[in-house]
Write a protein that binds this DNA or RNA. Structure first.
Length: 292
DNA sequence: CGGGGTTCCTGGCCGC
DNA sequence: TGCGGCCAGGAACCCC
């Protein structure tokens, strides 16, 4: 019973997705390259304690896979960071900050500190042998990067056919394509005119969805990410992509394409917004949609 | 192995 | 106005 009625929410939590993580990577990469980690402190939770294992290593490239940041270390290991829902990663001057939400702090050899702040503690850190992602199963079986040329219409359609779950659930699984979360999933489905609960897509719909995923992610990167409440990039700045959202968070407002009132519900316990006119369900019998 | 459900967390919203 | 209850949400985790 995946669909439940729900009331609209005024506020939505910030969730770093691919554009937000990519924005942070681009800013942080040059600042971290060549820096030696000379010390570290971490929250005792198993999610953050691995931070201290990076002490002594020198950082190389900062890469991104989906929503994961991977910092190459010079000892054939890598430091992996997932921001979860409320995580941020910044380089700050060393010194006491009295911030109760700092979960890990790495002291660098240039006098700065790399600070991982995460209010809700849904984020996660790991230090592993290079390429050994067994302790992060979603990363280990992550789908292709959205802008990978090898991800063509046929490959995407084939990946979607591998599961009979709702198409939005599949997008959020990170398997057909990496990096899509709740915001960009709703945006892409709206742009492609695909109902989030559809379980089988036609070839044209599948191709349209891939194109839409790429365009909404590209727009997100171009605008420095989406800031709904307190997402900030590596320099503490808010993104502006929230000014360009057509669907997510707009339940009850008119569709920017057709004027119909956008509807909201939950799909697999996730807030979902869609336009009933632009995104009609292909197989109504498989869904039970209740309108608030 | 896929599908489905549960858990982790906390601030902020809602209702009384 | 104050306070307690409840909810969101990515990915790990567990069970079938």
């Amino acid at each position: 019973m995946p669909w439940q009625p729900r009331r609209p929410r005024v506020q939505a939590p910030p969730v770093p997705e691919l554009p937000e993580v990519e924005t942070i990577r681009r800013q942080l990469g040059p600042r971290l390259a060549g820096r030696r980690i000379v010390g570290a402190t971490a929250h005792p939770s198993a999610k953050f304690a691995p931070a201290t294992r990076a002490v002594g290593a020198t950082v190389g490239d900062l890469r991104r896979r989906g929503k994961y940041l991977l910092a190459d270390l010079d000892d054939d290991r890598e430091l992996i960071v997932h921001l979860g829902m409320t995580g941020s990663l910044r380089c700050l001057p060393a010194g006491p900050r009295d911030d109760p939400y700092e979960r890990a702090v790495w002291a660098l050899d240039d006098g700065t500190e790399l600070v991982f702040r995460d209010v809700r503690r849904f984020g996660r850190l790991a230090v592993v042998s290079a390429g050994d992602h067994r302790e992060l199963p979603t990363l280990a079986s992550l789908g292709p990067e959205p802008f990978d040329p090898a991800l063509d219409d046929a490959a995407f359609a084939s990946a979607l056919r591998a599961s009979s779950r709702a198409v939005k659930t599949q997008l959020l699984s990170q398997r057909p394509v990496a990096g899509v979360g709740n915001i960009y999933a709703d945006e892409a489905l709206w742009r492609a005119g695909v109902h989030p609960g559809d379980r089988r897509l036609t070839r044209p719909a599948s191709a349209g969805l891939l194109a839409a995923v790429r365009s909404v992610l590209a727009a997100g990167i171009e605008h420095g990410g989406t800031t709904l409440r307190d997402y900030v990039d590596a320099e503490g700045r808010r993104g502006t992509n929230q000014l360009h959202l057509d669907c997510y968070g707009r339940a009850g407002e008119p569709c920017t394409r057709c004027g119909e009132r956008l509807r909201s519900g939950t799909l697999d316990a996730r807030t979902t917004t869609w336009c009933p006119r632009c995104q009609p369900p292909r197989a109504p019998r498989t869904l039970r949609v209740t309108i608030w």
